[in-house]
Design a protein around this nucleic acid. Sequence first.
DNA 1: CGGACAACCTGGCGGC
DNA 2: TGCCGCCAGGTTGTCC
Length: 273
Amino acid sequence: MPELPEVETVVRGLRAPLIGRTFSAVWYERERVIQLPDAASFSARLLGQTVRAITRRAKYIVCALDHDYLLLHLRMTGRLYVVPADQQSADDRWLRLRLSLDNGHELRFSDARRFGRAYLTADLNDVFAEIGPEPLEDDFTVEMLQARLRKRHKSIKALLLDQSFLAGVGNIYADEALFTAQIHPLRSAASLMPAEAARLHSSIRAALNAGIVHEGASVNWYRKPDGSSGSSQAHFYVYDRQGQPCLVCGSPIEKIRVAQRGTHFCPNCQMRA
DNA sequence: CGGACAACCTGGCGGC
DNA sequence: TGCCGCCAGGTTGTCC
């Protein structure tokens, strides 16, 4: 659920409370939450390092430290927040990882489904080697998208979810982008005409930027670091709107399965070639 | 390469 | 009210 706009919103919310802070203790519920390296090495290396910058790559939160990068991935139900060490939070019910700071606060990672992971590495390539281009960067051009689409024959919906094809797009924004680009989710990527690829390029960017403006979509689990919800879900054209009238033509929005994911589209606006 | 499917997990919700 | 079973979707890995 947390996709690029949700992760970007979390990154922005963590900068003020975390930058300049030094880690002083590590607690985890289960070793599994630490993906890289082993839990003991993770703790030993993290202690004493200071957060210098926080950015995003794909759906990862990237904290640049003195000698390493601390990466956090929320997967489905992860939440991050910084609070005084003695302060309770409603989300502590699913507390999985707690990183103490030198100012008496803690960075807490709550995650009901326990899918989220933390990584510590000096080389980002260890984790990002297979990640595709960032859709909001200047080097993601229509020409680049078109060239990459041409080589792939699977459904465009499945391809948009593939992080090695494009970074940061998940189920919600894939459906939203395909709707505004007026492309049926089952169309083969290589079959897209140049004009369709151009529409898709601008639609992906528009959908992601709108998501960021509304501080993410709180369909169910996502929360901003301050505990509040985003409002992106109030602006969806098709996601979770099956049976309701298309906001453009009035036809009922349909829901099908594509690549094992719930996929929402307008059968009239997104005709199959 | 691509599609299908299981696994990882648990809360929420529809159905009975 | 309560229990059952399904659904949600990010990612990896396996099989055909």
